[in-house]
Simulated scan of single mutants.
Amino acid sequence: MVLLGTIVNGLCIILGTVIGSFLSRIPEKVKHTVMQGIGLSVSLLGIQMGLKSEQFLVVIVSLVVGAIIGEYIDLDQKLENLGQWLERKIGKRAKGEIAKGFVTATLIFVIGALAIIGSLDSGLRQDHRVLYTKSLIDGFTSIILTTTLGIGVMFSAIPVMLYQGSIALFANQIEQVVPTELMNSFIVEMTSTGGLMILAIGLNILNITKIRVANLLPSILVVALIVTILYFI
């Protein structure tokens, strides 16, 4: 089953959120310190990912162009509107800020090499081991995130499954169209670009900055475009 790894990944995120929601009933003082710990951990993850770039100019240009596109279409506000809609639907059962939990978890779970490599393995060879490993990591991470960011983390399972499922379903076509060297270069630069976005999330969690991270998301598409152009020049 091509989508088995992706489905397991989504279920682990949902299960982790459910477990985390029970653990969220901790004193505010403890929750605040836990949030700071999460912010530091997310920041470190972002730095590690950001340093993987082999062409840092690509990362800079992608973030600048992506930010312009993101601000023009205002993804951050659209995501906030979605979060408010979810809060109205969920009502008093919602714990924390839906949009914040959704954005934070989605970026952490989607951006990185495991999502792409694991999905390609699932699609090409029906080998789900990489996605199983990612599922365990994401499940544990969702527990920690939910204790402070609330049930919005659960909704990140939707874009994760859509993203990884699409790659798995079209894996054969991707392998035929995209040269291996180009794919490897894209993964590296995408990971680095995404890492800086995750660093921004960590800084936001620590209340050091108020970066509209969602408006930087188009940078991923810009990375793909620039890397492709450079490959064929």
Results as ranks from 00 to 15, higher is better:
95 K>S: 06
153 V>L: 02
145 L>P: 06
143 I>D: 09
25 R>F: 10
201 I>G: 01
31 K>S: 10
231 Y>L: 01
49 M>H: 07
147 T>Q: 08
72 Y>F: 12
86 L>M: 06
190 M>D: 15
30 V>A: 08
194 G>H: 05
127 D>S: 08
119 S>Y: 07
22 F>W: 13
84 Q>I: 04
49 M>Q: 08
231 Y>M: 09
18 V>Q: 14
175 E>C: 13
5 G>R: 03
10 G>E: 05
182 L>I: 00
215 N>G: 03
216 L>W: 11
25 R>S: 15
225 L>P: 15
151 I>H: 03
113 A>L: 11
59 V>G: 12
212 R>L: 13
140 F>I: 11
207 N>C: 13
117 I>L: 06
59 V>L: 14
37 G>Y: 04
9 N>M: 12
121 D>K: 12
78 K>V: 14
65 V>P: 08
149 L>G: 08
220 I>S: 11
231 Y>A: 04
51 L>R: 09
89 K>P: 05
222 V>L: 03
40 L>C: 02
60 I>Y: 15
130 V>C: 00
82 L>S: 10
64 V>H: 07
84 Q>L: 11
84 Q>R: 03
133 T>N: 14
132 Y>P: 01
118 G>Y: 13
9 N>V: 05
184 N>C: 07
12 C>W: 15
196 L>I: 07
20 G>Q: 02
224 A>C: 10
230 L>I: 07
208 I>R: 13
179 P>T: 03
194 G>L: 04
23 L>E: 08
118 G>Q: 12
49 M>D: 11
205 I>R: 00
11 L>E: 06
168 A>Y: 06
130 V>P: 03
125 R>Q: 11
15 L>T: 12
125 R>E: 10
139 G>Q: 15
167 I>Q: 01
172 N>E: 14
229 I>E: 08
179 P>Q: 00
230 L>H: 02
145 L>F: 15
220 I>H: 09
191 T>C: 14
190 M>N: 14
225 L>M: 15
8 V>D: 11
114 L>C: 06
113 A>R: 13
214 A>C: 08
135 S>F: 06
168 A>Q: 04
9 N>G: 07
149 L>K: 04
137 I>V: 14
14 I>L: 15
187 I>V: 10
187 I>M: 11
